[in-house]
Amino acid sequence: MNILNNNKIVNCASAECLLPQFVDGNLSAREAWQLEKHLAECRNCSTKVDQLKQTIDLLHTASRLDTADDFMAKLHARLDVIDESANSVGTVPQRASLRELAATYLRMLRVPGVPIGVAIGAVAVLMIALIPNLKPAPGTITTSKPDAHISTVVEAQLAQTAADPLGDAAADQLVVHQNNAIPDSYNP
């Protein structure tokens, strides 16, 4: 901002631009000196500065009030209710309200990288939800009873390995889905 023209305050408008810093004592020595010269010549501006300083003094001496005598008692009664309701749930007291948790979640979304993580998580959840609807590839063995199936497969593999110690063709075909894709009636 070009306040001073050749180090001189040219008019009241430019002087007024310096007033905020002047009343707070934040002007450079040169600027303060220039402004004081202008104030000595301009009654209008000097009155404004005087009144501004008086206003600030008045604000600084504003009366201080205190809370009612029962303020602490009322507050602790409310805090007791909060603690009791948190404890009655039977869990570790969670002090953050639902609104605050939502706000925290929204703040997390503003952190670089977090939205990508959330997106990946959402895709993973969708995939988990969709996988049960996918048909198994031909030749794939699936079961809802992984333990029984594993022992069956291991026995078959041991038999094949005994017959052909250098080959392990059974391992190439071994795919185990530990889900509910095959009804319980399946009996390998």
Binding site: L79, I82, S97
Partner: peptide, 26 residues
Amino acid sequence: RQVESAADAEDLTQETFVRAYLSINS
């Protein structure tokens, strides 16, 4: 000095500290 009555000021001051208590962990 922000609200219209001392009673409102008292209530909002209480509410300020209740909220601070609830969210001190954040």
